[in-house]
Amino acid sequence: MEDGRIRVTRRDVLRGAGAAALVGAVAAGQEPAAPPAKGLARVGPGAVRVPFTLNGAAAEVSVEPRVTLLDALRDRLDLTGTKRICDHGACGGCTVFLDGKPVNSCLVLAVDVSGREVTTIEGLAKGDDLHPVQAAFVKHDAAMCGFCTPGMVMSCAALLSVTKNPTEEQIRRAVAGNLCRCGTYPHVFAAVREAGGGRGADGGAGEAAR
């Protein structure tokens, strides 16, 4: 699949430069519905090949444009660590990193990640070496039924990637979009405090930290 992939750096994506070149999605086995208009790349409604970087490696999935990244990950790529809980952006269970930032994968179309970088919970640990957040979650019993846990871990890891020594307030705000029905929140806070290297002073980074 390597050949069909269009390489872009994250910075290109953020700048929105060369947008047409970024559209790596290719209609798979279906005729184009209409001649493409100028400045527009058209795919679908049938299945589309979507090349992207998944957990650091080249990947590709073939889906209709209406399929979300969450469903593509779970039902096409067998990466079931990312959970479907509300499917409407209101629980954080489906949190993945898109170009390094946590987003709800239930509100992202899979076609949209073409040429971009996706990291899921499966990509966080390096083999058996847990990410510090994961290790701290284990130690502080921050997973009960564990269903919210992958999303929770992703939000916490995102926080620590930009804020070294987060305050309790920063931790709470970082996981404010992750619901837990079992009630692990206090354990999550304790885990992240430890993984972040203890209770830090407020860096004032605020939202920029996310």
């Binding site: 997973a143 564990g146 992958p150």
Partner: peptide, 9 residues
């Protein structure tokens, strides 16, 4: 089962 849960496995 903590490790299985925090890794998504």
């Amino acid at each position: 089962d903590a490790v299985a849960k925090v890794t998504g496995r």
